[in-house]
Amino acid sequence: MSGTTENASQETRIRVKVDPVACDAYGYCAELLPELVTLDEWGYPVVGSEPVPAHLVELAVRAARDCPRQAFLSEEIAH
């Protein structure tokens, strides 16, 4: 994993959310981002709406890319 971002002005801030229709409770997002994602009693992800901390952005983008149903979405927060 790469180190911390050096250039603060180029830091992308992102938010993550789950498309509940597409989600099929694979749970990859919870494996990759246990700090942000918890699973409810039926295996579906619970995510907050706060911006993703800088050190987790790369993982969040990866989780969005790897979700088998493309249900984990990351979007940039417009400043």
Binding site: A25, Y26, G27, Y28, E31, L32, G43, A63, D66, P68
Partner: peptide, 18 residues
């Protein structure tokens, strides 16, 4: 095997998919 819902700490499914 990536479709299974059974996850282990030592072998996470995202790693298997990778």
């Amino acid at each position: 095997g990536t479709a299974n819902r059974f996850s282990m700490r030592s072998w996470p499914r995202f790693a298997q998919q990778d």
